[in-house]
Amino acid sequence: MTRWMLPFVAALLAAIATVALAQELKSLRGDLGVADADRAPAVSGVREAGRYDRAYRQQPPLVPHQVDKYEVDLKVNQCLRCHDWPNNVRENAPKVSETHYVDRQGKRLDQISSTRWFCTQCHVPQSDAKPLVDNAFRSALERR
């Protein structure tokens, strides 16, 4: 191979690679150009249940109802309307764990610790959405 051929060979290889990659690579949004608008997937509704089982010991309990209309901001946390003691008695709702009434220094509080204010950081509702990628997750009970 003479020296002058090198750039042409390189360009040819690059072209083949690009075509091959373009055919093989497919992102989760499908075979779409970067600039193309994707079609939004259907919104799956929130599943209602009595109560979800935990999948492992430390799992924050899942929320078996819709929460999207609830106001959680600087002033108000609407989750606490039912789940904070003593309201949970009236509403017959699960009580927020006592671990949420302890501040950073370990001092016990009579209202929920500000570090625990945003419930949905850990506690989430469940929808019927199918996983986009296969995974091998098994609950702690299944693995015993």
């Binding site: 106001e71 901001d73 002033k75 108000v76 609407q78 606490l80 309307r81 904070d84 309201n87």
Partner: peptide, 16 residues
């Protein structure tokens, strides 16, 4: 309560 407007701080004590 708070269906169409944001709730005030202390809403649930007031409600009770």
């Amino acid at each position: 309560k708070g269906v169409a407007h944001r709730l005030p701080a202390g809403a649930f004590n007031a409600e009770r």
